[in-house]
Computed example of a mutant assay.
Amino acid sequence: MIRQNQLKGSNTIKDPDEWTTGDEPMTGAQHSYLKTLSDEAGEEFDEALTKAEASKRIEELQHKTGRGLNN
């Protein structure tokens, strides 16, 4: 599957590994959404994730639960 940031000419979505603030704690919005997704997927919720890690985990759980996907 092609991620949006891999599309030729797309510079609007940056890989979380390239975020300058990616090593900061996840945001409140990420925390809330990740908790919801984790519960729905029956997966463990890790409160200690960074912004970048939370973003990746959200993407994984969206695929698992079918939430938040536009394709």
Rank of each mutant, 00 (worst) to 15 (best):
K35D: 13
K35P: 00
D17E: 15
D17Y: 09
T20V: 11
P16E: 04
L34W: 02
E60R: 06
A29F: 12
T65P: 14
T27H: 11
L37N: 02
L69I: 10
E24Q: 12
K14E: 13
G42Y: 12
E18T: 04
E53N: 07
D17C: 04
R57M: 04
Q62W: 05
D23L: 02
Y33W: 11
I13F: 13
D46N: 04
K8V: 10
T36M: 05
E47Y: 13
R67M: 14
K8T: 07
N11H: 13
Q4C: 15
E24S: 11
S38C: 07
A48Y: 04
W19T: 07
L7I: 15
A29M: 14
G22S: 00
S38W: 06
I58M: 12
D17S: 08
L61D: 04
Q62E: 14
T27I: 10
S10P: 05
N70Q: 09
G66E: 06
T65A: 02
E60V: 08
T20Y: 02
G66A: 06
E24L: 12
G28T: 14
I58H: 03
D17M: 09
T50H: 04
D17T: 12
S55L: 04
K64I: 07
L34S: 00
E59D: 15
E40I: 06
L69W: 02
P16K: 10
T12V: 11
H63W: 06
E59R: 08
T27R: 01
E40P: 01
R3Y: 15
S55P: 07
K64N: 02
Q4M: 13
E60Y: 13
D15H: 11
